[in-house]
C-alpha cells in the first residue's frame, strides 16, 4: 500500500496519523509541504527514524528543491522525481492520501 502525505507535520497531523496507520511494508511518499517531515533537525526526525525499519519512505525531489530543503534529507529517505512518483503509484495496488 502507498500512503501520500502533502501537509507539513508542523501544521497538520497527517504525517503522524499516516505513521500510526501504515502497516509494515507500506510505502510513504511525502510531497508538497509534506516534504518538511523528511528533513534532518526537525522534531519529526525521531518519529521518521523509528518508522523507517518497517516503512519505505520517499520524498518528492522537486518539492524539496523548491523549498530549499534538498540538502538536508534524512538518511534512509529516498528522493524521487515525478517519474518515480508515477512508478510508486503504479507498483502499489492501493493508495491512501492523507489530505
Amino acid at each position: 500500500m502507498l500512503h501520500i502525505v502533502n501537509k507539513s507535520p508542523y501544521e497538520r497531523n497527517a504525517l503522524e496519523s499516516c505513521l500510526r496507520l501504515a502497516i509494515n511494508g507500506s510505502a510513504v511518499l511525502l510531497i508538497e509541504d509534506g516534504v518538511y517531515g523528511a528533513v534532518k533537525g526537525g522534531s519529526f526526525e525521531g518519529a521518521l527514524q523509528a518508522a523507517l525499519p518497517g516503512l519505505k519512505i520517499y520524498a518528492l525531489g522537486p518539492d524539496l528543491s523548491a523549498r530549499g530543503m534538498a540538502d538536508r534529507v534524512l538518511d534512509g529517505v529516498s528522493v524521487v522525481d515525478y517519474g518515480g512518483f508515477v512508478d510508486l503509484v503504479a507498483e502499489h495496488s492501493n493508495c491512501q492520501s492523507w489530505l
Binding site: 500500500m1 500510526r20 496507520l21 502497516i23 492501493n94 491512501q96
Partner: peptide
Amino acid sequence: DHAEMAAKMAEQDVLISF
C-alpha cells in the same frame, strides 16, 4: 485500534479520502 484499522485499510481495493 490503530493496528486493526491499519490492517483494514491495507486490505481495501480503493480508498477515498475526505
